[in-house]
Structures are given as structure tokens and as C-alpha cells.
Amino acid sequence: MASNKKVLLKVIILGDSSVGKTSLMNQYVNRKFSNQYKATIGADFLTKEVTIDDRTVTMQIWDTAGQERFQSLGVAFYRGADCCVLVFDVTAPNTFKSLDSWRDEFLIQAAPREPDNFPFVLLGNKVDLEPRAISAKRAQQWCQSKNDIPYFETSAKEGLNVEQAFLAIAKNALAQQNQTVDLYNEFPDQIKLTNTQRPSNGSDSCAC
């Protein structure tokens, strides 16, 4: 793959409502945190330029609505995702339990080429809060059962581990994209069926 080509990595953040998806994104992109809760409607994205192994890539981070009533808008943006970030709240057990359905729904809607190898990253957020309901061990066990998903414990409020987590996300996303591109490049001498040089004025080219 040509390294001078502009690379756009599409990352989707999923998880139950109020686990801190928007806060994590804001902490990472803007280095800002607010204690005030504001439900996300539908989905929205922010972009950030990052350098990975001397290459500058643009991350397009899609933040989504966790609340069901704000999910009526579609999820067409799942398509073409390079990495999916699952978030739960370490102090709220229910948010951990619904990880499976978030993952399943994502795989069905996004329909990646290789669902088993699609890169996910799990973030256990709000580690600054007590008491913990989900131990690191339990989260890691879940990750192992899902083809060794990387796991990070973060705090969007304190900015703890956020940078590292998103770097890992970016690396995984980039690896996924390179893989997909390699897949397409298996046959380097492609024959393009859509010949754009053909004159468009169809009436002139008519034989009769």
C-alpha cells in the first residue's frame, strides 16, 4: 500500500447509555471532560490526526446513542468500520452484560468480511469510581472468549489510559485496513470493467 496515500480510519464506539462513550471521545480528541450528562442523539463523529509508526492517519471516531429511544436513526455508518470499541461501566454490571448483544448487532449490521477476525477493543470505563462491580479478571475472561480482544481500564474523567487505549484502537484499525487492502491486491493486474474513457455521448456512437 502506498504510504503517501491519505488514510482514514473509521472507529465506532458502542455501549449502553451513560457508560461514558462521548466523554471518552471528548477526552481523547479535545482533552475536555464535563460531569454533566447529555444523551447523544443518533450518532455523530469527531476526527483526530494521529501518527502511527511514522504514518499520519486520520481517525474518524463515531460516537453513538446508548439510549434506545435515541437509536431510531440508522446505523449505516457501521459499514466500512475498521475497528469497534465496546465500552462498559466498571461500576454497573448491566452494562457489562449487554456487551454481547452490542457485539452481535455490530457484526450483523456492519457485515465485515471476516467477522471472527474483526478488531474489537474493550474499555472498562469509570475506574476512578467506587465500588467496582466488574473485576479486571472477569472482563479479561470475556475478552479471551472473544478471540483475545485487547482490554483497557480507563477513566475519561481523569484522562487515565485514554491515550493508550485509542492508540491501540488506531493500530488495530490500521492493521485491519491493511489486511483488507492486501486482500483486494491479491490480483494486481485487475481488469477494470468500467471504462471511464469511453465517450459519454451515446447517441453519436450508435451504429445506425
Binding site: G42, A43, D44, F45, W62, L73, G74, V75, A76, F77, Y78, R79, I108, Q109, A111
Partner: peptide
């Protein structure tokens, strides 16, 4: 609009 496009649906 990138956002609105993303908020569409894909018939599964």
C-alpha cells in the same frame, strides 16, 4: 452530509 448519511439504514 457525512453525519446524515451515517444515520441512514442498510437493509439487512
Amino acid at each position: 452530509c457525512e453525519i446524515c448519511k451515517g444515520r441512514g439504514h442498510i437493509c439487512e
